[in-house]
Design a protein around this nucleic acid. Structure first.
Lengths: 172, 172
DNA sequence: AGCAAGTGCTTCGGATTCGAAGCAACTGCG
DNA sequence: CGCAGTTGCTTCGAATCCGAAGCACTTGCT
């Protein structure tokens, strides 16, 4: 199992740590703002934002979960919570009897709008303030590439059940 | 409070989303590896790694918490857990009677060593595979800058108690 | 058509998380 | 010196999170 993976050099380590650290710091700061401005957790905000972004204002549960990188059961919990608050509705998908479609309500959009300016302000102050235009462009480009690559790996929802094919890391 | 914060442009939004998404995906992948390889959660790994990185192998609780961007109470919990497993020890700081110094044990170092190769492998496969040398260097540079800027804001441990001074953004 | 495997979501139980409150030691200022 | 305010950590209670197991519908294969 210990197949001598090339040890990371200093730059790689730096990139990795900086990525984790920066995202953690940002997430926490944003989380506080969201809590105060609209009593939303970060995930809840992500869910509403994802839905709001959709042309129809709705998505299937699994797609939502994969989109925000969340467990299915966790999403069920959050969907219930948001539904109780009247920010989303849940309904059976028309084509698939099992599927549940989550839709953002006007109330949900209102909260989103309520919270958004402050959200942007935090981003400006914390993330973008220290970066040049070019930095931001590069960041967007590089991270998008990394993300796309990671998305190729089967998402959250596919792993657990069955492991019919080869299991893990491997190349003959 | 709605001070018309400049709306983000597409690039900024892209950078932000990519950052959050990429870090989430990476974190989850790493988490699975850590769980399998050494039954460690991500935070636990971060804590051990931080301690292992220290010349003395030890740190004070608050510094640890701020280092990994964690709540104090959460750290207390994790420190207990790690102590039970014999991966760290806790002792009173010599200079400050209240302070607690956490130190990594040989067992802790062993687990770290056990887990590290696989950890690196995941990083290679998921994060670095899609990026060029130059990409990685840029990423390290830009994110380090962002992180350092965010670190200027008082850390986790300073916020909660008292708000004796002005509340938010400000410089006299 | 009919059954076995697969997929979508929820429920369940337990682990982890956080902020607020509490306790103890430290500090500074009268 | 002595006490009010701070600071370091833990305890407490409640919220959130996840994976495993369960249930219901769908699909593929014969």
């Amino acid at each position: 199992m210990t197949s001598t993976p090339s040890p990371l050099d200093a730059t790689q380590l730096g990139a990795y740590f900086a990525l984790i650290e920066a995202s953690s710091l940002l997430k926490h700061a944003v989380e506080q703002q969201l809590r105060e401005a609209g009593d939303l957790s970060y995930v809840q905000f992500q869910l509403l934002a994802t839905l709001g972004d959709s042309p129809t204002g709705s998505r299937r549960m699994t797609d939502l979960a994969d989109g925000v990188v969340y467990s299915r059961s966790g999403l069920t919990y959050q969907a219930q919570t948001l539904e109780k608050r009247g920010l989303v509705t849940r309904s059976q998908s028309s084509d698939d009897e099992r599927g549940v479609t989550v839709t953002i309500t006007d109330g949900g959009r209102a909260v989103l709008a309520e919270v958004f300016p402050g959200h942007v302000a935090v981003l400006d102050d914390l993330l973008f303030a220290a970066l040049s235009r070019a930095d931001i462009e590069t960041l967007a480009d590089v991270l998008a590439r990394a993300r796309d690559h990671m998305r190729q790996t089967p998402p959250r929802s596919a792993q657990p059940r069955r492991r019919k094919r080869t299991t893990a890391a491997n190349q003959p």
